[in-house]
């Protein structure tokens, strides 16, 4: 255990600029972690990464690196757990099947680390079902982690637009959406969805999130008058 005082709220593993372990190459992650961990945690990490590199496969009911993945929080502290887990996954050269297993058997924290690891480990779109699973949750930490560079590269347009809208609904800062500028640019349909959402908020007497105006500006398109476009079916 690291602390006995309660009630202190800390952000989970990212800085305000939206940099996460998904954005930093593993070598950089390891250097940063090595500099920040205390002696015992650093020794644990070094050993965990050596083991993962030497025995990437499954041995017995559970591979040794999956055990390390499970205990990373209590070994390295919650602030460093995401980075430590991404490094373990990278050292074990986890492929899509392994990532799917670890995700489906993981705690929310382990699932988040798998999402952060995707851009480092999966070149193609094979792991998209994990991103889609995370986007279906209402755990905003998972939603945010799902929208990293891997989703920016591979998530289809319809799902990506809904993910952006979900960020606005649930208060995930759109800074967390990787490659937002590029994907939003010229997206008239996104612009229409944002304008409709703004109209819905206004009709209810609620404020429109600041981030909505930001994304709307990024689209660079003029939204149609609210409610004039055909809706694309309802999400349930």
């Amino acid at each position: 255990m690291t602390q006995h005082d309660a009630g202190h709220v800390t952000p989970a593993g990212h800085d305000p600029q939206g940099t996460t372990p998904a954005h930093v190459p593993p070598t950089g992650l390891r250097a940063a972690l090595t500099a920040e961990l205390d002696g015992a945690a650093r020794a644990w990490l070094d050993q965990a990464l050596d083991e993962a590199a030497a025995h990437p496969g499954t041995h017995g009911p559970i591979s040794v690196w999956e055990l390390r993945l499970a205990e990373a929080g209590r070994r390295c502290g919650p602030a460093h757990a995401d980075a430590a887990r991404v490094l373990v996954l990278h050292a074990a050269r986890a492929d899509t099947d392994a990532l799917r297993r670890v995700y489906s058997q993981g705690t929310a924290d382990e699932r988040r680390a798998v999402l952060y690891a995707l851009p480092h480990l999966v070149p193609g779109p094979d792991a998209l079902p994990l991103v889609e699973d995370a986007l279906r949750t209402n755990d905003t930490r998972l939603v945010a982690a799902a929208l990293g560079p891997y989703a920016a590269r591979h998530l289809d347009t319809h799902q990506w637009r809904h993910a952006v809208l979900k960020c606005l609904f649930t208060g995930v800062p759109v800074d967390r959406v990787a490659d937002l500028d590029r994907r939003a640019r010229g997206d008239a349909e996104l612009s229409r969805m944002l304008a409709d959402y703004a109209a819905e908020r206004t009709a209810a007497g609620r404020t429109v999130p600041e981030d909505l105006h930001r994304v709307l500006a990024l689209t660079g398109t003029e939204p149609p008058a609210p409610g004039t476009a055909d809706p694309h079916g309802k999400e349930s």
């Binding site: 255990m1 690291t2 602390q3 006995h4 005082d5 309660a6 009630g7 202190h8 709220v9 800390t10 952000p11 989970a12 593993g13 990212h14 929080g73 209590r74 919650p78 279906r136 209402n138 755990d139 905003t140 930490r141 939603v143 945010a144 809208l165 979900k166 960020c167 609904f169 649930t170 208060g171 995930v172 800062p173 967390r176 999400e235 349930s236």
Partner: peptide
Amino acid sequence: LELDVTSADATHEGNSILRGGA
């Protein structure tokens, strides 16, 4: 034991629970 509450970093007003985005 981890008694330091790690908040959902990306949530304002707790509204993902009150009314999720789905």
